[in-house]
């Protein structure tokens, strides 16, 4: 593939835009390092998932339409959020399936997916000398199939593991529960706060038991939830979005 001919639309989900700009910056810088032509539509807001997951899919239609309008001119749409990408691909089925809608649904990719499946990068020459625990965000894992869910009896693969395999100094720690949900779940975190927090605590504890210095994930939303718990309880472990680790790439 000739990287210079394709255009990439950068989709930065609302909560990353507002609270974690560094994740957006890392994603952008990484794609630029790879020589890609990246555009960022300034009028973008959100994929509409918060409303839809609350049962208000219909109220989200305007947001969906806005998303399609903002991104339909790009060859690919790339985002550092598996959950939002999954939402666009899976749940924009309630829109009238115009050429534009179909195109956007098919060409929207989560960052790791895009790097491996489309760009087919091999060694990014990542330098991150730390012990890292990988939290497999559920929508990326089971929705986008960025990895193999532990429930399945198929050949195991994990895109995050593949991307980090050659990273310098980085040690991936094994967890007791390789892909247990962190308990964020969007509105679940608000309307079922007790179970949500308990799940998060258990997830943090699993990483700490294995001496992880960092928890990384394809979804900042999971990490926002885990970080909230870590800070509340003054735990030593830190969170870092996968884009930030990948952006330590030399090339």
């Amino acid at each position: 593939m000739n990287h210079f001919k394709v255009t990439i639309g950068l989709f930065i989900p609302c909560y990353i835009d507002q609270f974690y700009p560094q994740v957006g910056i890392a994603t952008l810088e990484l794609l630029e390092k790879l020589g890609l032509d990246v555009g960022y539509p300034l009028l973008q807001t959100c994929c509409g998932q918060p409303m839809a997951n609350s049962g208000c899919e219909k109220k989200a239609v305007k947001v969906y339409q806005k998303f399609v309008k903002n991104f339909s001119s790009f060859d690919y749409v790339v985002s550092p959020s598996g959950s939002c990408v999954y939402h666009v691909r899976e749940h924009y089925n309630i829109l009238e399936q115009t050429e534009q809608v179909k195109k956007v649904r098919q060409s929207t990719f989560e960052l790791c997916e895009f790097l491996l499946d489309i760009l087919k990068v091999d060694d990014l020459q990542i330098h991150f000398p730390h012990k890292v625990g990988i939290h497999q965000s559920c929508h990326g894992l089971r929705g986008l199939k960025i990895g193999t869910g532990s429930e399945l009896v198929t050949k195991k693969q994990s895109k995050i593991h593949s991307l980090l395999a050659k990273a310098e100094g980085l040690e991936i720690v094994e967890l007791d529960r390789e892909d247990e949900c962190c308990g964020f779940g969007g509105i679940f975190s608000i309307f079922h706060p007790d179970v949500s927090v308990k799940m998060g605590k258990d997830r943090v504890a699993d990483h700490e038991r294995h001496w992880a210095e960092y928890i990384t994930a394809t979804d900042m939303s999971c990490l926002m939830h885990l970080e909230g718990i870590i800070r509340r309880q003054n735990r030593p472990v830190k969170v870092k979005h996968i884009a930030e680790i990948l952006n330590t790439a030399r090339r």
Binding site: G185, G186, M199
Partner: peptide
């Protein structure tokens, strides 16, 4: 239906 994080397991 809301008593789930929709993790899909």
């Amino acid at each position: 239906p809301f008593a789930s994080s929709l993790c899909g397991s």
